[in-house]
């Protein structure tokens, strides 16, 4: 009986959502010139007129090269990064705060004294390959968050890759215990560094998280001003935070 009701409710909800789909443009048939995102793609939020721009009119002609040039509002080649860490950076600060809150919550709920064992010896292949792969995995994580403004990726995926390296250490060694003091202090200092970047922007540019560094050329490693620095702090913060979560999951209370 309960299953029948559940099927009916779920089917009703699915039907309702399918009806709502009629108000949306068809899949793949979106016209970007009607959307706010065209401003972000043009790298000029304040002055560009998107309708004229898309039609190839004077203001910023369409098909104009953006890669390899300078003089835009935001110079990161990856537009998603420029939205996440530049235009909507305050939102990202809130997101990092939510992640911090959940890591603190996990620490409060699960924190224990000693490390939980798996009760069996790790596989030989796992132990040996960890020694070979660990530096490569950490280097790959650092590569991802350093190149966040040029390639897909950024601070959050890079930090997650680093946390995966810590998880590999836990899996391959029964005695391994992460140094929680280091991870907590790295996490705290990186979180405050993000706020300090914001306050520096407030002092120099008059707006919180203002991009106060020189912008450089679109597509080069030293470009986009404050964006790579912020993504590095986010990467280290997320990496240490998720490593702390992995460590806390492996703890157990006495008795």
């Amino acid at each position: 009986m309960r299953r029948l009701y559940a099927i009916l409710v779920a089917a009703g909800l699915i039907y309702m959502l399918f009806v709502f789909l009629g108000t949306l443009p068809l899949y793949g048939k979106v016209d970007l010139s009607n959307r706010v995102s065209a401003h972000f793609l043009a790298k000029d939020v304040n002055s560009v007129d998107v309708k004229k721009w898309v039609e190839g009119d004077k203001q910023v002609p369409s098909r104009e090269k953006i890669y390899g040039r300078k003089g835009f509002e935001d110079e990161s080649a990856n537009v998603v990064t420029s939205i996440v860490v530049n235009y909507r950076s305050f939102d990202t600060l809130g997101e990092v705060t939510v992640l911090f809150a959940s890591a603190v919550g996990i620490g409060l709920v699960l924190g224990g004294m000693k490390r939980m064992g798996y009760g069996r010896k790790p596989n030989f292949i796992l132990r040996v390959s960890t020694g070979i792969l660990l530096p490569l995995i950490i280097m790959f994580g650092i590569y991802i968050f350093v190149h966040g403004h040029l390639t897909p990726g950024g601070g959050f995926p890079g930090g997650t890759v680093i946390a995966a390296a810590v998880l590999l250490l836990y899996l391959s060694n029964e005695e391994f215990v992460a140094n929680m003091k280091t991870s907590k202090s790295l996490e705290g200092s990186m979180g405050s560094l993000y706020v300090i970047f914001g306050l520096a922007g407030l002092a120099t540019g008059g707006a919180f998280l203002f991009n106060f560094l020189p912008n450089g050329v679109v597509g080069s490693l030293f470009s986009a001003g404050v964006v790579p620095l912020v993504y590095m702090t986010i990467g280290l913060k997320v990496g240490s935070e998720l490593s702390g979560v992995v460590a806390e999951i492996h703890e157990e209370r006495e008795g």
Binding site: S62, E64, K65, I66, Y67, A77, N78
Partner: peptide, 11 residues
């Protein structure tokens, strides 16, 4: 949405 050498501009 990434500006690269292959896709240098916006159309």
């Amino acid at each position: 949405p990434i500006y690269t050498r292959a896709l240098p501009g916006f159309s």
